[in-house]
Amino acid sequence: MTELLNIENLHARVEEKEILKGLSLKVNAGEVHAIMGPNGSGKSTLASVLAGKPGYEITEGSVNFQGEDLLEFEAEERAQKGIFLGFQYPVEIPGVNSMYFLRTALNAQRKARGEEELDGIDFMDFIQDKLELLDMNTEFLKRPVNVGFSGGEKKRHETLQMCALNPTLALLDETDSGLDIDALQIVSRGVNAMRGEGKAIVLITHYQRLLDYIEPDFVHVLKDGQIIKSGDKTLATELEKEGYSGLTNETTAA
């Protein structure tokens, strides 16, 4: 197995408050990992730190991505290297339509990789099957980014961007939150289409529900800034029944 991502003893703080307290995680190519945990355990912070969001201070530990020190790079460089973050709360950009936004992003990445940029016509050809996969149409692309989108539309739009940008490592932060079953199925279809050799997906989620549609290879429990338990998909079912509290007691005792 090719190692894609290796996080070792990661400590991160925001405004003097330590959130990640020695987190370690290895992700190999071809794997899907689910990270579960209660509110405030550091799930979103982990996603933000990996994507290079400003405002976080790394005090200890390392993150290696495809043989490079990931923490050395700016957010846009990480994106260009193949890291995608599906946002829990996608941001509105008034006046910028989705098509222009997505094409600009795609071309920025292609340019950074020394590939030819796509013009408007090529882009429409390129995006067509991705739209179909997610039950979306070109009308959607004419709307300003996330402005007036419903919760489901926002998440489908995030998934569309992921499919278009075709990342090596996709970090999906609470992609399932606020979705009804139909939307959940559609989004899961997009994520499953992303699975493949050489790529990996890290799902951050509250609920086991998503994992009925996207089957993970590994499930990790994040609590108080550390991964306290790892297992296969049965761990998720267990958590759904028992909750996180029992688990904590167990580990603290151990």
């Binding site: 290079g52 400003p54 957010a75 846009e76 946002f87 941001v91 600009t104």
Partner: peptide, 15 residues
């Protein structure tokens, strides 16, 4: 907002 900037940069655009 910083959130808007980060969103764009995460998609690969320079600041």
């Amino acid at each position: 907002s910083d959130e808007q900037l980060f969103y764009c940069r995460q998609r690969g655009l320079s600041e």
